[in-house]
Amino acid sequence: MTLKTYFSNIFSTIRSLLKGMRRTGYYFTHHKEIITQQYPEYKPPLPERFRGEVVMPHNADNEHKCTGCTACELACPNGTIKIVTKQEINAAGKKKKALDTFVYHLELCTMCNLCIVACPTDAIEMAQSFEHSVFDRNSLIKTLNEPGSKLEEGIE
């Protein structure tokens, strides 16, 4: 190593280090570059496709669209959904299979969206809620159909 390379080494090192310091120094003085979001106060809007939880929307008359066909139960890779059906006599006086309880295990769900895709009547959809932590895991086992709800007219 000649004396020249020795000193040029030192100078190029110092230059490269100063360049890095200029970059961090820039961010130190430019506070508007900060990207932190203050979470509980500011909740960023979630896109409508965000998969947070399976829900079953009900209309104003407390009616849902689930026929109890168990397509979602079959599509689920984790056994998250359990559908209990009952026999019901409809307006025409015929016996018909209908939904009794739609049990949804949020603690098993991986939000893969396969049940939503599988549903022939669009009875379930993904909600944008994501704050699911609870103290008792039993409260994560949910019944999606509202008490007293029934199938919407015209859905087969």
């Binding site: 979630l46 896109p47 496709r49 965000f50 991986t110 939000m111 893969c112 969206n113």
Partner: peptide, 20 residues
């Protein structure tokens, strides 16, 4: 997230194409 609905575990590609 906007297109696939998830940030990390996408499950967006399905046999035959893409989910959405």
């Amino acid at each position: 997230e906007e297109t696939c609905g998830a940030r990390l575990t996408m499950n967006y590609m399905v046999p035959g194409g893409v989910m959405f």
